[in-house]
Amino acid sequence: MTNSTKTKSSSNIENQALPWYNRPLWGSQSFFSWFQSLLYGVVSGKQEIPESTVIIYKDTLKSLKNISALVKSVDNEKFTSREFMNFLNLNRQFESNTGTYEGLKYSIELLRVALETKESFLKIEATETRYRSYSQQEFYEYVYEYLQQDLSVSEFQELVQRQLNDIIPKIKTDEGKAAIQSYVNQLDIVCKDKLGLKLLFLFKQYDLSNFALLRTVSEIADTFYDKNLESIKEFMVVVQLNAEIFLKLGQIIQVPTTKNKPETYALMLQYIALRNRHQKSYGQFQQLLGLLKEWERYYNPLITIRQEYPFSEYKQPSIFTEEIPGLNIYEKYQNHLEKSS
């Protein structure tokens, strides 16, 4: 046997002892070596992502993580409760003056201001009823005259203050002076915006005694504090029992004639009750939507980069496969973002 034959025989025996994937497949190359080279060829055939793009991706993801932490801290299970979702739907109709609340936005705003400042309205009425000297009555007439003019809040307050400075020396008793000063203080509370100015004018125009309606309506509204607010039926029952009061109030808060009926006041009370209950949560929800809009500003570039440099064609760093933080919360409220934009 020649040396070369001996070498081949020895080599064959050694190869037989190797695992199948390490045995020569073609020539001296094993299957494992061939597969490695094939895989390397595939990988090395992919293009490199520009380093500047990778840096942008990393920085954007970092910003997204920071915002996601804030988003997570603000998110609340209340935001997906049935009643809150119902309020959001009604509030959108209210803000756009459409649907259920078409033509009622201005009237509801007037009613809301009236209920929020009812104590001041009642004190104004009490002062005008009790303190009736000539100077005081003249002062009240000046106030009504100013209310009839299209004045800004600051203009109204300035004119009232001038009249106050003029009348105080004419009032003889300290009690009378204190009463007029208190009266002006209540005017400031009621007339802190144009709605308040308009509302005070309307009450005075129709009859100052109508201020008493506010106490009754406020007491009715308070009965719904801890009740289920989703059904309109309970509101309808209460309004129908007090129909005369609400129809009278409708003139003052300028409810359209075609809508001056119990159903309208039931809807108004329901909205105000829902608003009072969810006012704090609504503010937090708006904050959440604002954060999600900011989150979206960073999310969109990340998705764009991933789409522009797909794994099938580019060597993606591991950071490209990381889970995007906050995506689950974004998807949960995405339809609200679209409606609010």
Rank of each mutant, 00 (worst) to 15 (best):
M1H: 03
N3Y: 07
T7C: 01
T7P: 00
S10N: 13
Q16M: 11
W20G: 12
Y21I: 11
S33P: 03
L38V: 13
L39K: 12
V42T: 04
V42W: 04
V43C: 02
K46T: 03
K46G: 02
Q47N: 12
Q47L: 09
P50A: 11
E51P: 02
T53F: 05
S63C: 03
K65S: 06
S73Y: 01
E77F: 06
F79I: 01
E83R: 14
L88S: 09
E95T: 12
S96F: 09
S107A: 15
L110P: 08
L111I: 10
F121Q: 11
S133N: 08
S133F: 10
S135K: 04
S135N: 11
Q137M: 14
F139Q: 06
E145D: 14
D150F: 14
L151R: 13
D166C: 02
K172Q: 08
T173M: 01
E175C: 01
V184T: 14
N185C: 05
Q186F: 13
Q186A: 12
L187V: 07
L195N: 15
L197I: 11
L202Y: 13
F203A: 10
Y206K: 14
L208I: 13
S209T: 06
L214N: 09
R215Y: 07
V217E: 05
I220T: 09
E230N: 15
E230P: 01
K233W: 02
M236N: 10
V239Q: 11
V239F: 10
N242E: 13
A243I: 15
F246V: 07
G250L: 08
I252S: 08
N260I: 10
T264E: 05
L269F: 14
L269W: 11
Q270R: 15
A273E: 01
R275I: 02
H278M: 06
Y282S: 06
G283Y: 01
Q284W: 02
G290I: 04
E296P: 01
Y299E: 00
N300W: 00
I303Q: 03
Y309D: 07
P317A: 08
P317H: 07
I319H: 05
N328Q: 00
I329V: 08
E331G: 00
K332F: 00
Y333I: 00
Q334N: 03
N335H: 12
S341I: 07
